[in-house]
Simulated scan of single mutants.
Amino acid sequence: MNLILQSLSAERNAIDHIAALAGVAAVDISSAGRHAWRCDNVTLSDALKAQLDAACYSARIDYALLPSASKLSDFKLLAMDMDSTLITIECIDEIADMQGLKPQVSEITEAAMRGELEFNESLTRRVALLKGLDAGALQRVYDERLQLSPGAGEMLAAVKAAGIKTLLVSGGFTFFTDRMKTSLGLDYAHSNVLEIINGKLTGKVVGSIVNADEKQRTVERVCAELNITPGQAIVMGDGANDLNMMNVAGLSVAFRAKPVVRKKAGVALNFVGLDGILPILA
């Protein structure tokens, strides 16, 4: 296995300490402002993984263990969650802030992302709290608060250059995913439709909810359209409702994710940006 170490702040002695745990030396592979090191021929064991988990997290170092042959060119689709993954905010929380209800909605959002609350129920409850809000609040959130996560632009440029198709699949709303698809030049987008009547949110979602199962079905459907297998997809997410689609992917990436997602993902990026997948698949 190749062990890839990345950090925005770690000193070289911290990197060497981690490499020593794996019984190998670390070679600097930093490029384009990304600080990364590779350790070749690492023998993985449960004991070593436990050591890496503890040592790397405390030193704010991200690590990935992958077969040495893994390359970006092995993949044909990048599927991304939107809220708190491709972008830094949870859009529904920011919409709720326009109603003075952000704490109530954020609490439900967090419980759902931790896997403590069924997603359909959580979304229905959150959207209901938005009833009566002027639809102009959506544009305000998009204009004033929506920002790409660190490294998103660099990651998207690299995957597009590699000929990889892009899918934005979200438990959020089409108002945002459609605009992101256009502005970023993404190939596919799928999310929920907020009902708006006479310029006001009704507190309801139109049609079926894009939950964990639907996210998985969307990844599988797009893969079928592209005539590829889910094993040729990279899937990125942060919450429990991303786990199903991550489970069918060739590479699952947890980005600044909840513990339940970090534990189950193939790779966890806790400290570096989304472009942290590039040294891993160099």
Rank of each mutant, 00 (worst) to 15 (best):
K181R: 15
P103V: 10
Q104A: 08
E154K: 15
R145L: 13
G203D: 05
I29V: 14
R38F: 01
G171L: 03
V206S: 15
L186F: 14
V169W: 05
G231L: 12
L133G: 00
V261P: 00
V253M: 02
T88K: 14
S183G: 06
L44V: 15
D16G: 12
G276Y: 00
D81H: 10
G276D: 00
A135W: 02
I234R: 01
M180E: 04
D97Y: 01
V261W: 05
G273E: 02
P279H: 01
Y142Q: 01
I95P: 05
V105Q: 08
C39H: 04
M82G: 06
L66W: 00
A128L: 12
S149L: 02
L156S: 05
Q147V: 14
A14R: 15
L168Q: 05
S70G: 08
E116A: 14
D97M: 05
V27F: 06
T85W: 09
E116Y: 11
L184Q: 10
A19K: 09
G237W: 02
Q51I: 11
S45V: 13
I92R: 08
L5K: 00
L78S: 06
S31F: 13
D275N: 08
T174E: 13
Y142M: 06
M1R: 04
L133D: 01
S170L: 00
V235N: 04
L44T: 15
L138I: 10
T166Y: 11
K160S: 13
G23N: 08
E11R: 15
P279F: 01
L201Y: 11
R140V: 14
V24Y: 07
D134F: 00
K76Q: 12
D74M: 12
A111H: 11
P279I: 00
E107F: 09
S149C: 10
E90K: 10
M80W: 05
Q232I: 05
S122H: 04
V235R: 00
K102G: 06
D74V: 08
G136T: 09
G237C: 13
S122V: 04
A212V: 13
I15R: 03
L251T: 01
R221Y: 10
E90Y: 09
E121I: 13
A135K: 04
A36L: 04
A152G: 08
L48E: 02
C223H: 06
M246R: 07
T177G: 04
A265H: 04
R217V: 11
R217D: 15
T124K: 12
A79C: 03
V272S: 00
G136Q: 10
T166M: 09
S31R: 11
T43H: 15
L78T: 03
I277N: 00
Y63G: 01
E195W: 12
A96C: 08
M98A: 15
G273R: 03
K76R: 15
G151Q: 02
A233L: 05
T174K: 12
